[in-house]
Structure formats: structure tokens, C-alpha cells
Design a protein around this nucleic acid. Structure first.
Length: 184
DNA sequence: AAGAAGATTCGCT
DNA sequence: GCGAATCTTCTTA
């Protein structure tokens, strides 16, 4: 699922207008992974990770940023894919306003920035991404480049797994050069 | 009940 | 490169 989502389009339809981007970086948090928010079982806040594949899970990180995930296992099994970066497509001026910067490269490079650029908050937690609504996923006819993998960013538990995926050479991918340079 | 850690970002040096 | 900001959850007393 983490590989599948690379190259797909995430579309945000909002009263202020449409903003969308091509997914270029993801991380997998599968069942049994101690770093997953679903690891300790289902709670009201984590409920969306236990929905059938294709639902949004939104949580607040470090008290300052929202992060967006896609549920990835059958109903009742907790797992998700963190969307870490987008290549901006539609609504770039709108995203620039929300992010407070004109630098297109920085609009959605990183999970918190991406959520800000698309105005994603807790109200979108649990939304079905497979039907056209406020937030949904679309396929793209654009070709997808080679996909590299690395360890995940910003976690300490289960840190050795190669569960981060990104499009090779894409300038909108987040993370340190050191990690991105690693191929396997 | 209090403290620490966490799937981050921004500003300053 | 480093530390603060800031909210939720988990751990320990």
C-alpha cells in the first residue's frame, strides 16, 4: 500500500478552492509495529486506523502540526500509511497563502507542512478517501519513477525497518540527504 | 497527579 | 545545527 500510493493524487476540495498534489513519499506502519499508533489497540482517537483501507487518519504531532495517514488493513486491523510529502499540482497560490511562503518546494515537503497546505485537521479524521468529497484520492496518468526505500524519519522504536518509500530524485521529498542517499 | 516522549516545524546561531 | 513551541498519550509515583 505504501508503494501503491506513490504517484497517486491527493485532492482537497474546500470552500476556498481546490488544492492537490502528487504523493511522492510515504511511510508504512503495519500491524505489530511498536511505533504504530495502533499498536496498543483501538481507542476513540485511533479509531480511523482500524477502518477498512482507504480512510483518512489525522492526528496532532508535537502539539503543533497535524499529520495525515491512509488506513491500510481490513476493518478491525489497525494500520496506516503516513503521507510525508506531495508535489504540488493545483491550487498553488492557495497553498502558498496557507503556508505563509512562496517557495513551492516547501509547500508540502514534510507531513505537517502537507497538512497545513491542504487545510487538513481533525475534522477530516475518518473520511472515506475513495469517494469524491472534501478529501479524496485520484489516480494519475503521469508516469511514476523508481521507488527507493529507507528507514523511517523521527521515530526511535522499530527504527531499523526499511518502511519509508519515496520517488527517486524527486525534489519534493523530505528528509536528510544522508537518509535519501541510502538505496536498497 | 506529575513528568517525559513523541510519525514536526520554525527561527536563530 | 540546536532548542523552543505546544498537545496528547503513556509511564511512574
Amino acid at each position: 500500500m505504501a508503494r501503491f500510493l506513490i504517484g497517486k493524487i491527493l485532492v482537497r476540495d474546500h470552500p476556498d478552492g481546490r488544492a492537490s498534489g502528487r504523493i511522492v513519499e510515504t511511510e508504512a506502519y503495519p500491524p505489530g509495529d511498536a511505533s504504530s499508533h495502533a499498536y496498543r489497540g483501538e481507542t476513540p482517537a485511533r479509531r480511523s486506523m482500524f477502518l477498512r483501507p482507504g480512510h483518512g487518519y489525522v492526528y496532532m504531532a508535537y502539539g503543533s502540526c497535524y499529520c495525515f495517514n491512509v488506513s491500510s488493513e481490513p476493518a478491525g486491523v489497525g494500520a496506516g500509511i503516513l503521507i510525508r510529502a506531495l508535489e504540488p499540482l493545483e491550487g498553488i497560490p492557495l497553498m502558498q497563502r496557507r503556508r505563509g511562503t512562496d517557495k513551492v518546494r516547501d509547500l508540502a515537503r514534510g507531513p505537517g507542512r502537507l497538512a497545513t497546505a491542504l487545510a487538513i485537521g481533525r475534522e477530516l479524521d475518518g473520511v472515506d478517501l475513495c469517494v469524491k468529497g472534501p478529501l479524496w484520492l485520484a489516480t494519475s496518468s503521469l508516469p511514476t519513477g523508481a521507488i527507493d526505500e529507507s528507514v523511517r524519519i523521527g521515530i526511535s522504536r522499530e527504527a531499523h525497518h526499511l518502511r519509508r518509500f519515496y520517488e527517486r530524485g524527486n525534489p519534493y521529498v523530505s528528509g536528510a540527504r544522508r537518509i535519501n542517499a541510502r538505496r536498497s
